[in-house]
Design a protein around this nucleic acid. Structure first.
Lengths: 232, 232
DNA sequence: GCAAAAGTGTTCTCGGTACACCCATGC
DNA sequence: GCATGGGTGTACCGAGAACACTTTTGC
C-alpha cells in the first residue's frame, strides 16, 4: 500500500441541528437511532457523505429526507474530528444547522431514524449519541450569536407574523431573563424599515387582532449594502 | 466490498491561514508548493491529517513545521468539501487560521514547501492552488469580523506595544478608509481597562518616546465574565 | 530649532432604556 | 362588561463622533 493510499481510509458525515420555533420556545429536532452504533439513543440527524456528493448537498439531503423540506436556511458550523469520536472507524463530521418553519414540518422519519421528535433546545438530554451534545451546544451558541446580528430569525416564523410573535421568538433565542421591552422592541425593529405591514390582520383571537407583517428580504439587502446593521 | 467500506475511501486535510502584522499591513504566509499537484503554485500551508491524529493537532503540526511556533492562537473556520476540489481523490479540507507575532517567525520551510513568503492579506494573487483563494477569503472575512468583537488582535503584536501600534493594527485589519480617530481610539481602549502600562518606554526613536502597554488577559476574562463586551 | 510622533478634553448628537395607560375584540 | 393581548410616546442618560494644539525627543 502506498503512503498516499493509507490516508484514503476515512469517511465523513454531516450532522444537522434543525431548529424550529413553536410560538413559545426554541426546539431541536432529534431522532432516535434505528441502527448501530448507539441504536435507540437520541441523536442529531446525519448521514455519511457519498463519495461524489458535495458537503452542502449532503446536508440538504439529510434535511430533505427527514422533513420533506428543501430550500431552507442551512449553514455550516464546523468540523468535529476527534480521532475516537466514531466507534467503527475514522469519521469526521461536519455540523450544520438549519432553521425551519415548524408548521411546514411533516413527520416522515427517514430510514436512518426510528422516530423523530422535537426537544427543547435549551434543555436537551445530555447523553446523545457520539459527540452530539458537543455539536448541539456549539450550534446553539452560534445561532444565538448570529441571530443578534443578522435577520435570520424570520426563517423560523411563518411568512406573516405579528410583532409579538417576533418578540417572543427573540426572547426564546436569546433567552433574556426578564424579556424585552415591548415598546422598545417595536420601535427598534420598525425603525430598521425591513418589515412590511400586510393588509390582513390576525383573526379568531379573543382580543384585539394584531397586524401581520412580512420580512422584506430585498429591502434588507439593499439597506445592508448601504451600511444598515441588524442588531438586537 | 461492503456498502460501508465504499465510504471509507476519502481523506482529509487541514489548511492554515497564518496571519501576521509587520507594523504597516496585515500579511498572510503562503508557500510555494514543492510537489504535485499544483507544483510551483502558491498555496496555503496544509497537509493530510494522519489517521490517528485529531484535526486540531494536525493544524498545530502544520503550523509548527512551517514556523517553529507552537502555543499560538489557532482557530477552525470551516470545512471545504466540493467533490472536485482535489485532483487526486476525494479530499475535504478543514480551514484554520492562526495569528502569530511576526517577529517570532523564523523561516524554516517544511518539507511540503519550496519556500514560504509573506503576502499582503488584502491583495493576494488570485490563482492560488486548489480552492485556496476561497479559503483565504473566508478566513480573512472571519478575522475581520472576530477582531471587532474579541481581543484577538493582541496575538499579532509583540507582548509590549504602543497605543499607536495597536491602532495601526486595527486600521489594517478593519481596513477603515480614513483611519480611526486617535483620541477616541485611546479613550475607548483604555476605558476597557484591559491594558496595563509598563514602566518602560519606547527607546531610540527620533521623536517623543511612547509608553508601552501590555494586554492583561486575566483582567479581560474577569471583566468579560461580568459583561464587558470588547467592541471596536 | 526643526521634524516627527506622543499625548490630551470638550461639545454635540443620537440611540438605548425605562416606564403606564387606552384600545379592539370574543365571549 | 370583562378578560385578553394589541398598540402607543416621552424623558433621561451615556456612548460615539468630531475636532486642534502642546509636549518630548533625536538630530
Amino acid at each position: 500500500m502506498s503512503e498516499v493510499e493509507s490516508f484514503f481510509k476515512s469517511a465523513f458525515s454531516v450532522d444537522n441541528v434543525i431548529f424550529g420555533f413553536d410560538g413559545r420556545s426554541l426546539k431541536v429536532l432529534l431522532i432516535q437511532r434505528g441502527a448501530a452504533p448507539f441504536r435507540g439513543k437520541w441523536a442529531l440527524p446525519g448521514d455519511l457523505v457519498y463519495p461524489n456528493e458535495d458537503l452542502d448537498a449532503a446536508a440538504e439531503r439529510v434535511l430533505q429526507q427527514l422533513t420533506g423540506l428543501s430550500n431552507v436556511y442551512l449553514e455550516q458550523v464546523k468540523a468535529f474530528g476527534a480521532v475516537d469520536r466514531h466507534p467503527i472507524g475514522r469519521v469526521i463530521t461536519i455540523a450544520y444547522y438549519s432553521l425551519i418553519k415548524i408548521s411546514n414540518y411533516a413527520v416522515t422519519p427517514a430510514s436512518f431514524a426510528q422516530s423523530a421528535q422535537w426537544h427543547e433546545a435549551n434543555n436537551v438530554i445530555t447523553d446523545l449519541a457520539f459527540d452530539h451534545n458537543d455539536i448541539l451546544d456549539t450550534c446553539l451558541q452560534q445561532l444565538k450569536t448570529k441571530a443578534r446580528r443578522e435577520p435570520i430569525g424570520f426563517e423560523l416564523l411563518p411568512p406573516k407574523f405579528t410583532l409579538t410573535e417576533l418578540q417572543q421568538l427573540y426572547e426564546a433565542i436569546l433567552d433574556q431573563p426578564k424579556g424585552l421591552d415591548k415598546r422598545n422592541f417595536r420601535k427598534k425593529i420598525l425603525a430598521m424599515n425591513i418589515l412590511v405591514e400586510c393588509s390582513e390582520q390576525q383573526a379568531g383571537v379573543a382580543h384585539r387582532p394584531a397586524k401581520l407583517y412580512q420580512f422584506d428580504k430585498e429591502k434588507y439587502e439593499a439597506l445592508a449594502a448601504k451600511g444598515l446593521s441588524f442588531d438586537l
